[in-house]
Design a protein around this nucleic acid. Structure first.
Lengths: 161, 161
DNA sequence: TGTTATTATTTCAAGTCAAAACTTTTTAAG
DNA sequence: CTTAAAAAGTTTTGACTTGAAATAATAACA
């Protein structure tokens, strides 16, 4: 028998996974741009802010999105220019900035999120209902495996050892 | 019952898929950098060239990798500087350039590909053997669905209708 | 009370990516 | 033959990304 360990099947799976994910991402980017004149990173930032009523600090934002702090600065800069978010300096700790959605940003995001859900729904519908849950579980298995090997990247919160 | 159409489950699946894919990509980028001083896009270009003995034109390269032609220019520029690929102008059609791996590039890529296979293997091993194939099939279902809705992005080759 | 360390954020350099404008070359029409 | 259209690449512009260095403010402590 060939490929006894299944190595080739795993490579094939990865290429398939990468291609599919990129394809979905491409559609999302494309529609966010054409329908809302925004981008996926900006959408992600707004989504995080939408979930928190009071807004978030830059650091917490970068932790939650698992991107560098310098990265968040640029994205928030643009959102601020567009009037969708607002920076407020914390007067108790003048190092910190609180970022929050403006009323405009909140209203716009509600529409974006609804559309985003529709798009995802449209793209993932071909999958049988039971496969949807099964696949989610498989991803969890993979992430657990990577985490236990220390190969994951979301361990910004310094462990206490 | 809540979520009768399964919309929430599909959103959850997408977020899980995105997170997992990014995590794998992160590991690959990280190791390509630390062990071979290269990047994923450069690896992808070398992989495409490795499969074709004669080399490829810039346009065919950008079609195959599904990235913009301007993008390929920059990546090939860097690979050329590193001495891993070579540009040869086609004398019959002086617009066209043929890009091919150098001997050095070919030798190096062989090592990179072996390591790449090991890394993938390592990360995807937690998945049961039958799930590996099953998941690959599910991705195929998704891509087929997207393609039939015209939502795929790899239709650069103008259809003849 | 003065360091010294830590924390929060921004800035910068290098690279990745897409889209659009542009150059050069080739092909097609008339 | 001359002009128009198409094709192959490159350049440019703008956005995103990381990691490192720079700023600034706060906390810790001897």
């Amino acid at each position: 028998m060939q490929d006894p360990s299944g190595a080739k099947k795993r490579l094939k799976l990865w290429l398939s996974m990468l291609r599919t994910t990129r394809n979905v991402e491409y559609v999302l980017r494309d529609r966010l741009k054409s329908e809302f004149d925004t981008t996926l990173p900006r959408f992600d930032v707004m989504a995080a802010l939408f979930r928190s009523d009071e807004g978030m600090s830059m650091t917490r934002l970068s932790e939650q999105l698992v991107v560098s702090n310098g990265n968040v600065t640029g994205i928030v800069d643009r959102l601020e220019q567009e009037g969708r978010v607002q920076r407020v300096t914390n007067e108790r700790d003048r190092r910190a900035t609180l970022v929050a959605l403006t009323d405009l940003g909140r209203a716009e995001f509600a529409k974006m999120a609804a559309a985003h859900q529709r798009w995802i729904d449209e793209m993932l519908t071909p999958l049988a209902a039971e496969d949807t849950g099964r696949m989610t579980d498989m991803f969890q298995v993979l992430r657990d495996g990577m985490q236990s090997s220390g190969m994951d990247r979301q361990r910004k919160t310094k462990s206490k050892d």
